[in-house]
Design a protein around this nucleic acid. Structure first.
Lengths: 346, 346
DNA sequence: CTGTTAGCGCCTTCAC
DNA sequence: GTGAAGGCGCTAACAG
């Protein structure tokens, strides 16, 4: 059968409690005894039973990370950063915590389901990345779930979405509105007046805030809004939405997109239509994913410090960094002007 | 305090055993009773205690996924695919299994550490993605660890690395050698004779196999090997290695790289040196990541069916797809000829 | 510093 | 179809 802590205790001629203390290192144990125990562990190839200790100690070494899509670098970068900060000393027996990555696909039901699953695991913490779905019913359910998780002792950090009041969750929000605004201001500054917009899916905070920033900039400059098309945050959506935009507004001179991935699709559609970037049409993205500097022309975009934000979320989740005042912090984006935007042709 | 199964039982006026049976659905229970139990669960907002059931049942709902770097789409795509196949009916109480993603950073020690951690969690299965480190000591340790994991009932699937004999692990290996060979054959066919190679880190199966394929093609065509530089699988390495190559072999007409990400760095270095792609120098990648079709010129590369491979690994890990004969299957890559390669200038 | 004693919350034979 | 009882493997007070 599988070797247990009792077997180790027997071989080391100590009590099970002592073995437990050695393994968890949270208690003074004589050096000689520790040696003996460690040797026994080694001899027997003993591996602690995680569920058993989690049950007895009422905590676990699991940290949940909710993402829309782990294959998307936007989320992959944040997840990796969270992960890099949750290990190290501090946890039980070795201090290594494990990251449970949950792909929600952007569905609010799956989000809730995964939170329940993590609650079931008695996760030590949960980091929720990406924007939220804006729907009163779901928001209500979400708030309740977060509250219960928090009461059960799970620390919750939102990374890239607005706070959820009265839940105890810490929020690190990106300044999507400000970024969207600066992007469009940049275009207007170059002389563009007909600016198409490929937005993300509706009913999502990220989509709304970026779009609002865009509209703020237009309004302030007294420029009329051109066409806006919504779609998922993927390349294909950028491609199709751009074709649609070109159909509806043949005279546009610039396109702002929901994010860099969408921008890639937009560029492909423009080229296919025989339009040059940026000579005929300027294109702007959002996020500044790693590939964005390598496409030709390099993409003008808003850099979001995804790695830093994820790392910070991880540290806060582990209690290794103080919570921001008011349990909320806004992370700014940085406008990156590159080759994909230029003044419009006369 | 936290509500337990006993509380639910009391409220539904049944025994704890019955509640357990309803929740796990593995046992006949009268419809009326089930109703009552379910209502009580709802009323009390009861959430099963995962560690407790894992302890009692000696199994868990966790599936481990080892990756080098989750922020790299190569791994993100596979991890997402695995994840999409491990849910659904079959597990305990709801059937949802959780994916524990472990970033090894390519370190063999961390790989071993994570396997131990997953063993501790009594993971139902483990999928190990990416190439292996080729080092006798580590290989030995690895084989032992996999064997013990297997004996403890954890199913193991290797996705993208060669088999480890006598461990019971299933292997889905990519045909890196064949892909590398076809890529170089393509270049030779275009007329290239001075082909530089930016390889991945040494002592890794992926690196070695791709390089061997390259050399096989050279030898068969009677073409001398030009320079080869090793480095990590990242953009920066491609950039630096390419500068090094240009210094050592100014007359090269093509560069083959370890993967698409490295190819991006190579392209940047070439452009910086005032060289046009593909007019002055052809560039080829490997993997066919999503962005590779969007860079300009689009990258000639070898497409690996990452999503399909990951999904299959997930299904095999869950016992939902029969094991390949001989516990091993080779997955072919497909040569994608695009704009980044062309005949050399005369 | 170390041993003893109770559980942690659930599942699973075994009877009814 | 349902209840009763024991134990999964470990930890956390208490004593000493």
């Amino acid at each position: 059968m599988t070797v247990t802590l009792a077997d180790v205790a027997a071989r080391a001629q100590v009590s099970p409690a002592t073995v437990s203390r050695v393994l968890n290192g949270n208690y003074p144990v004589a050096a000689a005894t520790r040696e003996r125990v460690l040797r026994a562990v080694d001899d027997l190839d003993y591996v602690l039973n995680g569920p058993a200790s989690a049950l007895a100690a009422a905590t676990s070494d699991l940290v949940g990370i909710l993402v829309n899509d782990i294959a998307d670098p936007f989320f992959g970068i944040m997840a990796g950063a969270v992960q890099s900060e949750i290990g190290g000393p501090g946890g039980r027996a070795g201090g290594e915590r494990l990251a449970v990555v949950c792909n929600t696909g952007g569905s609010s039901e799956r989000e809730l389901t995964y939170l329940t699953l993590l609650q079931r695991q008695r996760a030590a913490a949960v980091v929720i990345t990406g924007g939220a779905v804006e729907n009163p019913v779901h928001a209500e359910a979400m708030a309740g779930k977060l509250r219960r998780l928090g009461e059960a002792g799970t620390r919750i950090v939102l990374c890239g979405r607005p706070p959820v009041p009265d839940t105890g969750a810490i929020a690190l929000a990106f300044d999507n509105r400000g970024g969207g605004r600066r992007l469009t201001e940049h275009l207007i500054g170059l002389g563009h007046r007909r600016i198409g917009y490929v937005a993300g899916p509706e009913e999502r905070t990220t989509t709304r805030h970026r779009l609002e920033g865009h509209r703020d900039a237009l309004k302030e400059a007294g420029v009329d809004e051109c066409a806006t098309v919504h779609g998922p945050y993927d390349r294909r959506s950028g491609y199709e939405a751009t074709r649609e935009l070109l159909r509806r507004e043949p005279d546009l001179t610039a396109i702002v997109t929901a994010n860099d991935t969408v921008a890639l699709g937009a560029c492909a559609a423009l080229r296919e239509a025989g339009l040059r970037i940026p000579e005929d049409v300027s294109v702007a993205g959002f996020d500044d994913l790693p590939f964005s500097v390598d496409v030709v022309p390099a993409l003008t975009t808003v850099r979001l410090p995804l790695h830093e934000a994820g790392a910070r979320a991880g540290r806060i989740a582990m209690g290794r960094e103080p919570e921001p005042p008011g349990k909320m912090s806004v992370i700014a984006g940085e406008l990156m002007v590159r080759g994909s935007t230029a003044p419009p042709r006369k």
